[in-house]
Design a protein around this nucleic acid. Sequence first.
DNA 1: TTTTATACATAAGAAAATTATGTATATATT
DNA 2: AATATATACATAATTTTCTTATGTATAAAA
Lengths: 112, 112
Amino acid sequence: MGNQKLYKGSLQTIILKLLAQNDKMYGYEITQKVKELTKGELKITEGALYPALHKLEAEGMLDVEVAKVGNRLRKYYKLTEHGTKETVNKLAEMQEFLKTMQQLVNPKFSLE
Amino acid sequence: MGNQKLYKGSLQTIILKLLAQNDKMYGYEITQKVKELTKGELKITEGALYPALHKLEAEGMLDVEVAKVGNRLRKYYKLTEHGTKETVNKLAEMQEFLKTMQQLVNPKFSLE
DNA sequence: TTTTATACATAAGAAAATTATGTATATATT
DNA sequence: AATATATACATAATTTTCTTATGTATAAAA
């Protein structure tokens, strides 16, 4: 996990993708889900997550719904219509980025 | 090219990889090579490149050799022994990052 | 002759994270 | 019963890494 800094710039896309496949999620749940899906490779910190969620909400990509579970509160986030459209774009951009980087760092490329 | 910010954090690795396969290169050459290899997808700006080269040099990853071509100067950079070792690590980290991100954003993943 | 390309560099500012800190409840461990 | 860990939110200070703007200078092309 010395590659945490490579994830810089991809947090928004990760959040949007998770919400696209899970309908609604709350912050803490997102951190746990990412840890699980990446087998501990990526640990989203609260200092990164919450500001990112607030920003996505401010941009109209997410709607919030506060729920009380026991005596503790949760903020459930879900994609707005706009957010759903943007998710498609962000995922396409991510795929292109991954493809380009793969070509750049692929050992085979040195044989050209 | 709305995905320039996804490249944040990967510049060092890109530079090292290019130097691993080209022995020695100068700054401007690197910007052109990246533009060519990525078909214009990624344009490295001077404001990002030169500080990055200076940092790699300060860290003992690169050696510099100044050359005069015509009346203009070039600074050729090449990997040090330490830089060569670090390149291997950085490339491994990059591969792991790409693999993880691929899994995270892969549409198929939503079928689990 | 004026624009574009080559070739370096740095400074100001923005974006996105890390690290540290804070509050509070719930559960597990000793 | 006491303490540590997990759950759940949040923000502030700082750092990293970039973009944008600016500067200098030579060479080639329009």
